[in-house]
Amino acid sequence: MKKSLCIGLLVLLCPVYAMAQSAFDGTWKIDTNKVQMSKKPDVIVLQNGMYECKTCVPAIKVKADGTDQKVTGHPYYDTMVVQVVDDHTVKEIEKKGGKVVSTSTTTVSPDGATAQFEFTDSSNTSSDPVTGKGGMKQVAKGPAGAHAISGSWVTSDIAGFSDNGLLFTYKEDGGKLGMSTPTGQSYQAKTDGTEAPYKGDPGISTVKVKQVGKNSLVETDMRNGKIIAVVKSTLSADGKSMDMVYEDKLQGRTMSYVAVKQ
């Protein structure tokens, strides 16, 4: 259930944008207390031995029998294991090329109204995996007789993220903006909107960075020529923080957050 969120969170917390002005140069850290998650729910059904993520892109439908199940169309993983631990707990393992790239465990409360999740994710990192946890609220129930994880869920809070998923650094030099993260993502892009290669992330192939006014920019992330996300950022008046809005074009979700200069 949480893979789309984990990936969604990895993109969110490892920002892929910067600006060709000295005020933006330096190392920044996401403040997880100021993250506003999308209100669009994840829709999950676990019933009759089958697991479905109806809002994943592409949608997922696999056997929930604890064995590797092939999935297609997902750049971060190609097999998925869904293990039913008990009536309220489900564990997921994603692999790529036979190597584990992420794990997540979701536990639903006894009344079914809330859930807690924990994850580790190295699907787009060349170093230690990003780890974190959070909570969810159910906004619609699943089918009668289905596992407790079934239903429509929105993320209510996130916490405990490792620093390698929160930090990013950039530097403008010679009309180009350089971005790098501890997890291995990087690019060198002109701030005039020219398309440039994006390195270190199997889900992003190129990027465009466009300066808008003195203290704002728009970044467009692309995969094989298709826009997958747009990030808008605005520097605060004192230059100590940035307000950012992340639009996931594939899943139709919008998140906002604040990065603080270190």
Rank of each mutant, 00 (worst) to 15 (best):
G97L: 01
A159R: 14
M1H: 12
M179W: 03
T79G: 00
I30P: 08
N48Q: 12
T32L: 06
K232Y: 14
T27D: 10
K54T: 11
V16S: 14
N33G: 12
D68Y: 03
T120P: 06
G175K: 11
G145K: 01
D25H: 06
E172Y: 12
K70E: 10
G49I: 01
K261S: 07
Y198H: 07
F168D: 09
A237K: 09
K34S: 12
T120A: 09
S236G: 10
A237I: 05
S150T: 06
M80N: 08
G165R: 00
C14D: 09
G98I: 11
A113H: 05
V209L: 13
P75V: 04
A23P: 13
E118P: 06
V90A: 00
K63H: 07
A113S: 11
P110Y: 05
Y187K: 08
T254V: 15
K61S: 10
Q69C: 05
M179Q: 07
T114W: 04
K210M: 12
T206E: 07
P15N: 09
T183P: 01
V231F: 13
D192A: 11
K261P: 14
I60V: 14
D128I: 09
P75K: 10
T106P: 04
Y257P: 09
V130R: 00
E172Q: 14
S109I: 08
D87F: 05
S22E: 15
P197Q: 09
A237D: 11
D248F: 07
G213W: 05
V245E: 14
R253I: 11
Q185W: 11
D25P: 06
G132H: 03
M80P: 10
G97E: 03
K2W: 15
G134Y: 03
I60D: 02
I93P: 03
D128T: 13
P58A: 08
K95A: 08
Q262P: 05
M19L: 15
P197L: 11
S4W: 11
T181K: 01
D78R: 02
C6M: 15
A237E: 12
G203K: 01
T155R: 07
T125V: 00
G193I: 12
G112A: 04
I228S: 09
G142N: 06
